[in-house]
Design a protein around this nucleic acid. Structure first.
Lengths: 231, 231
DNA sequence: ACAAAAGTGTTAAGCATACACCCATGG
DNA sequence: CCATGGGTGTATGCTTAACACTTTTGT
């Protein structure tokens, strides 16, 4: 059925459903994982899907994405970044739906288990992402691409790790993000030379007998710090 | 007025106008310029606007952007890349409109002057972009950001320059993109060390008495060559 | 002959890479 | 006492940055 504007500054224009799809990354067992959910309506009911929802008339697209995230994880004020818009004609066989993808990085431990169960959501290994429905595999691939670019220059470990973490954990995270291993000395040198880690006096004895010092990130600010060097 | 789906797999959902806005960059007089147009309808009639239009039910968002570009310039098959989606509630005072921005790079000389006149479109210096309506200044700033990132590693001179160009022109282009000057020797060394320029036997005598050799880009292919190194 | 743009190499510094051994401790 | 993961420094190559003079030719 055609949907068009009636009275408006812009009469007789087509209107569209707009969805948001959230690529929610977590880190567990030294692997990047992805929060997914079986689809609860047709078409492709029970197919594996990213967490998503439709944008409502009274909310911004960003708000819609945040609310999907908090509805499913209970987390608020999480850093999310837009991945892009997906607008091909046939991407959703159910209806014409234009979707905007966002990614978020969360600490798996900090989110609400019960909410996940309620929504039948669960964590899936990232390398299974090609099993997702529609164009969701593409969205995930694009999000990973952005994540890698960003992790190279920014303290992107932030929300994927707990508040306090060891350098070994951080390295494992980076190795998972880039899917390759790094020399331990070079990695530590580089991380410490960037100025965002602070060594704590606390030691984690869980990973080794010797124990490893905890670190934490100095400034949350850096997350928003895009240098908008316009002309 | 509320617009919602009636019969659909997704009943009773709100629907939206979707616009595309094109940031069309050109290069003239050693400056980056931007193709703009006075708005022809309310609100903000006659305000300076990016070239845009509404997406139609039977076209993809990308197709909508291409068709805006070709309607205004007569050019087809031009490289365009998505900048992002802009979906705040108040971005367009006329109605709730979610917009997807794209940028394109074209050779100013190659486009159709008459079409521009018909649409009252014209080239504006990039540093005047803050005069644009709505959130268009932000879109332009975001596009420049992407352009700079890309130009650092790819032969992005492509469509902004004519088929044949001198290294001086190429340098002027890069200096315009980054809004800074580069050492001539280092610039030439770097450009030539990347493998995409081919020296022609032709000489351009218009810019100097001595004359400068023309170059052209070897492979058009590189434009699409995203290395999608998924897991 | 001179003005104006084209063209060309070398050196120094900073950054990324490769690489191997000692430390502290719990079991 | 030994197995396990934590922690450390140096030498090399590569990439980037800084820097000044000669060439050509139209006027």
């Amino acid at each position: 059925m055609p949907k068009t504007t009636s009275t408006s500054f812009y009469p007789n224009q087509d209107t569209f459903l707009i969805a948001v799809d959230c690529i929610i990354f977590g880190f567990r067992d030294n692997k990047i994982s992805l929060l997914v959910q079986p689809r609860f309506l047709e078409p492709q009911k029970n197919g594996l899907s990213l967490l998503g929802g439709f944008v409502k008339a009274d909310e911004s697209v960003e708000q819609a994405a945040s609310s999907v995230l908090s509805r499913l994880t209970g987390l608020e004020n999480i850093f999310m970044e837009q991945v892009g818009m997906y607008g091909s004609l046939e991407r959703d066989p159910g209806d014409r739906v234009v979707s905007c993808a966002f990614y978020a990085l969360i600490d798996i431990e900090s989110q609400d288990e019960k909410l996940l169960e309620e929504h039948k959501a669960f964590w899936m290994n990232i390398n299974q992402a090609d099993k997702l429905i529609f164009d969701h595999p593409q969205m995930v691939a694009d999000a990973i691409h952005i994540l890698r670019r960003k992790a190279a220059v920014q303290p992107i470990g932030f929300n994927l790790l707990p508040e306090k973490f060891t350098l070994s954990q951080l390295q494992a995270l980076y190795e998972a993000i880039y899917n390759q291993s790094f020399d331990i000395r070079n990695f530590r040198k580089k991380m410490l030379s960037m100025d965002f880690l602070e060594k704590l006096n606390e030691v984690d004895k869980s990973g080794s007998k010797k124990g490893a010092f905890y670190y934490h990130f100095k400034e949350e600010k850096t997350l928003n710090g895009q240098t908008s060097s316009g002309f």
